[in-house]
Design a protein around this nucleic acid. Structure first.
Lengths: 234, 234
DNA sequence: CTACTTGACGAACGCTGTTCGTTACGATCA
DNA sequence: TGATCGTAACGAACAGCGTTCGTCAAGTAG
């Protein structure tokens, strides 16, 4: 009974296990199996350990996911002078943020639980505010404008992530149903009484084309900046 | 053993149990204990039955919550001619939607899982599109504009719901810490190196005043509509 | 060589969404 | 009236979840 475990020796090297290792493994898992499917147990399994071990470096699942969120934001490169004037740079910054977040499934959901205070989140906010000021937005409104842009980033990232997921699922099923959800919405509208929903019927065609989520996000962003420059914003 | 159960008689009347009853109970529970805390078991308990019984009327927790979401939207009254021109009406409609959703904790999260096709969601979309067209927004852009406004509604509702929840918690704790999260963000910014984050430092005051979430949501809405009228929207 | 701190982790708790198989009721039909 | 049958109701269970506790082993300081 004294020499019960040879585990410590049989296990070769093992991962040193650290806060960074846990967060990195969790992010990789988000990309692999999706945000909702990432559990403490699976993260532990990926690190070849038990779930309890994670709590040395992370206090909570929520805190872990907040760290993962900030790690993902590290991928966003700040636009430089080559990207043009303040407006072009702002559009570039926002576009990159949407792209990066959408590339990690529904990870952007983390940002809905409250203001993120991670290093990278603050780095992006700093640059966003700087560009807004450079564009002449009133100091008193800059915070609100950044908030509005943040909401746009998160919403668009989630929408795009969902679209990417659907597309991957359809590739996996190898079915030519093109866009099931799209057709669904179309048929729902078609079944509506035209007398009560005339506008939905009239615009049915343009409502159900969800394909170019990129162009739509860019259009929305232009609208927002236009609004900031035009009326109450400046 | 033959007269084992007098249950059917001892139980006085019992709830007839129906799809509507389940959804209504779930909505009441959302208001009482919060969106995240609503489980199938608790809904069943509120109806004095077991969790398995719910699955006769509802296929899924997600489907149940989608129904609850649409039921909540029924509270939104469409603005009438007394509310002014198309723009005033649109602002009124969006404001009411935000208010109603924010009054049901994080219920707006449901709308992040995909396009909602419930009766009331469509009712609001119809009116939104109608007003946008009346305002002269190009048909090709109306769908995108409605999407943008939807994102605003959901984001603002979630933000406001979180604020209301924090406030209720602080009332419960009877503490005068005013706004813990606010102070937290303030101290986080204060601790940042000023050389790398000059704008965050400069705007620190206006960034941390989260109090008037109403005024902020209204300002954002004005910005969006201004943007729709100004540049690429019309 | 001993004492102590600290990371690692097996086991367990209470909870979750959901399914299965069995009841018992109300309506239908002979 | 009496038998039949579809179906709402539900007790029990399953697999999985986040998290905590107590213990074990390894490294460090004295």
């Amino acid at each position: 009974m004294s020499t019960t475990r040879d585990n410590p020796r049989t296990r070769p090297a093992k991962a040193p296990l650290s806060r960074a290792a846990v967060v990195t493994a969790a992010l990789a898992l988000v990309d692999e199996i999706g945000f909702a499917a990432v559990t403490m147990r699976r993260v532990a399994q990926a690190l070849d350990t038990g779930p309890a071990s994670l709590y040395v470096y992370v206090s909570d699942r929520d805190e872990l996911m907040a760290q993962v969120y900030d790690l993902a934001l590290a991928e966003v490169e700040l636009p430089g002078p080559a990207d043009g004037d303040w407006r072009a740079r702002l559009e570039s910054l926002v576009g990159r943020a949407v792209g990066v977040l959408a590339g990690h499934d529904d990870l952007a959901m983390v940002a809905l639980t409250g203001v993120q205070t991670g290093t990278n989140a603050l780095r992006l906010t700093e640059e966003m505010l700087r560009l807004l000021r450079e564009g002449g937005i009133d100091d008193a409104h800059c915070a609100w404008a950044a908030d509005l842009l943040d909401q746009h980033v998160i919403s668009s990232a989630l929408e795009r992530a969902g679209w990417l997921r659907d597309q991957r699922r359809q590739e996996a099923t190898e079915q030519a149903m093109i866009l099931k959800a799209e057709r669904e919405l179309d048929s729902v509208i078609e079944a509506l009484p035209p007398a009560e929903f005339p506008t939905l019927h009239a615009l049915r065609g343009s409502l159900t084309t969800t394909g170019d989520s990129d162009a739509r996000a860019e259009w929305k962003l232009r609208v927002i900046i236009d609004g900031l420059l035009g009326g109450a914003g400046a």
